[in-house]
Structures are given as structure tokens and as C-alpha cells.
Computed example of a mutant assay.
Amino acid sequence: MAALGEQVRVVGFALAGVAVLIAEDPDAVRAAWRTLPEDVELVILTPAAADALGPEPSSDTAPLTAVMPP
């Protein structure tokens, strides 16, 4: 499991053992998405991270995603 997005919104997930990928802007979000380990099955996205990725996470080989409420 991983959490991807702005530091203030994802840092707390580290306390539960979730891999945290901090990305403060759309380019950083897309770069972090491309570096996800292959064994990640779920990525929790902030709303801004989901917007930055657009339809990219919906590919057949992509991990399941969940978007945090605003």
C-alpha cells in the first residue's frame, strides 16, 4: 500500500506502515507514480494527486486507487 500526494495530507499514513510518496505538484505526482514498486496493490491519492494523474491509474496493470475526500 502507498499514499501519494501533498505531505500534509499523506505523512500520517507512515505511522501505519504505508509507503508515503510526497509530491507537491502535478509533475512530482506523475514522477512518483512511475516509480511505484511493482508489489503495491493499493495507492491512496489526495484529490490533487488524482487530478494530476487523470486517467493514467485506470490501466489494467495499475494498482487499485482510492481518492481521499477533499
Rank of each mutant, 00 (worst) to 15 (best):
2 A>N: 06
29 V>P: 00
18 V>A: 12
36 L>H: 01
65 T>A: 06
1 M>S: 13
9 R>I: 01
62 A>Q: 04
12 G>F: 01
34 R>Y: 01
54 G>K: 12
65 T>C: 10
55 P>H: 09
9 R>H: 13
32 A>Q: 09
36 L>K: 09
31 A>K: 07
63 P>C: 08
28 A>H: 04
13 F>A: 15
21 L>W: 09
12 G>C: 01
18 V>Y: 07
47 P>T: 05
54 G>C: 10
51 D>S: 03
31 A>E: 14
67 V>K: 02
61 T>M: 14
34 R>K: 10
60 D>V: 02
13 F>S: 08
65 T>M: 05
20 V>Q: 05
26 P>E: 13
7 Q>Y: 03
48 A>F: 01
35 T>Q: 14
56 E>T: 15
58 S>P: 00
65 T>H: 01
11 V>W: 00
64 L>T: 05
55 P>Y: 06
33 W>V: 02
60 D>W: 04
42 L>H: 13
44 I>G: 05
67 V>R: 12
19 A>L: 14
65 T>W: 00
23 A>W: 07
38 E>L: 04
30 R>I: 02
52 A>Y: 03
39 D>K: 11
45 L>G: 07
46 T>C: 10
20 V>S: 06
39 D>I: 00
4 L>S: 10
50 A>T: 14
21 L>C: 09
29 V>D: 02
45 L>F: 03
59 S>Q: 12
69 P>A: 15
44 I>R: 03
52 A>H: 04
16 A>M: 06
45 L>V: 09
32 A>M: 01
29 V>H: 06
56 E>Q: 14
19 A>K: 08
13 F>N: 07
50 A>P: 13
1 M>P: 03
50 A>W: 05
11 V>R: 13
15 L>H: 11
45 L>Q: 08
62 A>G: 10
48 A>H: 04
25 D>I: 08
70 P>V: 09
52 A>V: 01
47 P>D: 07
48 A>Q: 13
46 T>H: 07
53 L>W: 08
10 V>L: 06
7 Q>V: 05
54 G>L: 09
33 W>K: 03
26 P>N: 15
61 T>W: 13
18 V>S: 12
2 A>E: 07
14 A>D: 12
45 L>T: 05
18 V>E: 14
42 L>Q: 11
31 A>V: 05
5 G>C: 09
56 E>I: 15
38 E>S: 14
9 R>Q: 15
2 A>I: 02
46 T>E: 09
17 G>D: 11
57 P>Q: 11
15 L>K: 10
11 V>Y: 00
39 D>A: 12
34 R>D: 15
53 L>S: 11
14 A>T: 07
9 R>C: 08
19 A>C: 03
49 A>I: 07
59 S>L: 04
54 G>Q: 13
59 S>A: 14
27 D>W: 03
35 T>I: 03
61 T>Y: 08
47 P>F: 04
9 R>E: 14
31 A>P: 00
69 P>D: 10
5 G>Y: 06
43 V>G: 05
69 P>G: 14
68 M>E: 10
12 G>H: 14
18 V>N: 10
52 A>N: 07
